[in-house]
């Protein structure tokens, strides 16, 4: 009951996602509207791929990358906060904060010489860039837990695994989630630029519109990407409110 009541804020992302769905499926029908922007061009609706295909493609890239960053980044954060890995903590922390100063476009650009054009390079670039906030927040979250709580968990006879899953991760969840949220925001934006390295994303209409001087395409792509980013952010915000506060 308490859980359900806390799900209240979910209406906001639901509404935004519904709007996104509506746009994706109906944008193609609003030709007359876009003609206003681009009166002299023959074609005003981007049609090389359907918007829904591009949306799924975009989401798949982002999802794959963020899940990958979460798994790798959280494992790293967990490892360096154990006694055995503690020696690596300062280095990993410093590396993650330095990594965050590298602009995401540069990471995307550097992925191409290594991995070539296309989806794999984009996913790997997003994944690597997404690691930094997750590692940093993971470490901060796990280290921010009250020492007395951990001591009494051990004192009660919880095993290391039980402490990790039942105490540490739930208590760090909010901070970790904030890291995932940052990663996702970056991934959505960078995936759009991924169009320039040959990934098929919602960036395609924008790039194609910029190249051909077709503002209607540009607006279609930008609207969908903007809405996607905002809906997912609202979703994270709802999940964050739903997580019990621990302070």
């Amino acid at each position: 009951m308490r859980g359900l009541a806390r799900l209240g804020p979910l209406w906001q992302p639901c509404l935004l996602l519904a709007l996104l769905g509506l746009l994706v499926h109906n944008l193609a029908n609003w030709e007359s509207l876009f003609r206003l922007v681009q009166p002299d061009t023959r074609q005003v609706i981007y049609s090389r791929d359907s918007f829904s295909y591009l949306l799924w493609q975009h989401l798949a890239l982002v999802g794959l990358a963020v899940v990958g960053s979460l798994m790798i980044g959280l494992s790293a954060a967990i490892l360096v906060t154990r006694t055995r890995g503690r020696a690596f903590l300062p280095l990993v922390n410093q590396l993650a904060s330095m990594g965050q100063t590298v602009p995401p476009v540069a990471v995307l650009a550097l992925a191409v010489p290594v991995l070539g054009f296309g989806n794999p390079a984009t996913v790997v670039a997003l994944l690597i860039y997404g690691l930094f906030p997750i590692v940093r927040n993971g470490i901060a979250g796990l280290q921010g837990i009250d020492g007395a709580v951990l001591e009494s968990a051990r004192g009660m006879g919880m095993s290391a695994m039980q402490i990790l899953w039942q105490v540490e991760l739930p208590l760090a969840a909010k901070v970790i989630l904030a890291g995932v949220r940052t990663s996702t925001t970056f991934a959505i934006a960078t995936a759009a630029i991924g169009s320039t390295v040959g990934a098929r994303t919602l960036g395609d209409p924008i790039i194609s519109g910029l190249i051909n001087g077709n503002n209607a395409y540009v607006i279609q792509g930008a609207l969908l990407i903007g809405l996607l980013a905002i809906s997912l952010d609202a979703l994270f915000s709802a999940v964050d409110k739903w997580l019990p506060s621990t302070h």
């Binding site: 925001t185 960036g203 924008i206 519109g209 503002n215 540009v218 930008a222 609207l223 980013a229 905002i230």
Partner: peptide, 20 residues
């Protein structure tokens, strides 16, 4: 916060039409 959430390429592009 809302502004910061909008992907850069989208914000750049959305400004093109009104400015032109």
């Amino acid at each position: 916060n809302f502004l910061q959430t909008i992907p850069s390429i989208a914000l750049f592009s959305l400004l093109i039409a009104p400015l032109s």
